[in-house]
Design a protein around this nucleic acid. Structure first.
Lengths: 227, 227
DNA sequence: ATTGTAATTTAGCTTTGCACAAATTGCAAT
DNA sequence: ATTGCAATTTGTGCAAAGCTAAATTACAAT
């Protein structure tokens, strides 16, 4: 019978972020959270104590954190809401995908369950956000394929599954290159040491050279075939 | 060059409420604000000092408050947003009018200017909220007619202009009686001393007896004609 | 002119969140 | 084993809002 009081806006944001970071490395370090949320590490520590008290995370001082089951559930709920709101912004209000994320963060936490439900229906029950990430219900389908475009070897071809949604400029640039979920890409050449990579966007794309960061923000289907 | 920092959610709520109360009686008393916002009077006093510091109100301790020009502008902006969001909830998400007000309060303050603008367009630039109140742009058209249904004399007939939006149960009941903006009503009989009144809702309404509070929550067109 | 009551304000305390500076801890390199 | 740095945590302080209880003020009625 914990948590009668509704989670504060900030708590949702923390939990959501912890969930994401946990998919890369678990337990999650205070500093990585601080960086992701753009909050001073000390403030994060404060909040972690509160989250632990509410049973949302397992917190071992100096050794990072993990989400509890309750925390996981909260995170999925937050992520679901976020992605539904994103779709609302793009599909119903005509926002560009690089604007959607920011705007969504603004009001997702003030959307009631009922509004979320109705939005979901009005949008024809979408399965993905505008950036290609799945909209979770109870469980978030884990990607079998956690390869980024950068990890493709020269000659390989793959389909874009989803792209990072938290850097507007990057998204805008991607859009200008025709990069979006569902599109096929071909790795032409790759420089070592996080150097630039040459790719073509199918069909009928010219060769393009993109930087490491961009290439590493594009997640592709693991089933790659030699061309 | 005051107010660089955005107004807090609470500040918007105060300013909006002050605006409404000011239309009935000006200056506005601390206690009426406290009652309207369901906040302890002492807390309201605290906030009034902050509002005064930000130049939103003229505050004379013990003698009530008035909105400054800046305050007025802020209030109209808040009201506009509120009413647009209400329409969004009813028109696009299918909420009942008695639910719209509550839900709108939840997230209206987290809606950005851009989202508001797009909502407004997507809704085909509505001129009124679901309860019949006008959606202001720069200035709020003051009602020439500030008569309530209760003030009609027996035999008079009038058109409903708008109804109070902040009491869900009341709204639900009104809906069940067919009472909404644009509908004609006929005053049949009226008891003195805030007693019940008998009315008919045109066209083809049976006679109905409603209480004082309800009758006084329905605002009608001043141009009444004897029937 | 005084008094009493209701409205209002002040005082003191709580909570949530954030930040900075100082102390502490973990761990890797010597 | 010790040292030293980076990551963390603790301590202190601030701001927004809110509450209760106590003091103060306005004003009307005597």
């Amino acid at each position: 019978m914990p948590e009668q009081i509704p989670l504060s806006e900030q708590v949702w944001e923390y939990v959501k972020q912890i969930f994401k970071l946990q998919q890369e490395r678990s337990p999650v370090a205070t500093s990585s959270l601080a960086e992701a949320l753009k909050i001073a590490p000390s403030s994060v520590t404060e909040m972690l104590k509160r989250l632990a008290k509410r049973g949302l995370i397992n917190y071992t001082p100096y050794h990072g954190i993990t989400l509890t089951d309750a925390g996981n559930e909260a995170a999925l709920k937050a992520i679901r809401r976020h992605r539904i709101v994103e779709r609302f912004l793009t599909d119903m209000l005509g926002f560009q995908w690089h604007e959607a994320h920011q705007e969504a963060v603004l009001f997702e936490h003030n959307v009631s369950d009922e509004v979320e439900r109705r939005l979901y229906v009005a949008l024809h029950k979408p399965t993905e956000c505008p950036h290609g990430y799945p909209i979770p219900s109870k469980t978030l389908p884990v990607f079998v394929t956690e390869r980024t475009l950068y990890e493709l070897e020269p000659g390989e071809e793959a389909v874009i599954m989803h792209v990072r949604d938290d850097e507007p400029e990057l998204l805008q640039f991607m859009a200008s290159l025709g990069i979006k979920p569902g599109v096929k890409v071909h790795m032409v050449e790759k420089d070592p040491f996080q150097g630039p990579v040459g790719i073509t966007v199918r069909p009928r794309g010219k060769k393009r050279t993109i930087g490491w960061h961009l290439a590493n923000s594009i997640y592709v289907d693991g089933a790659a075939k030699q061309s």
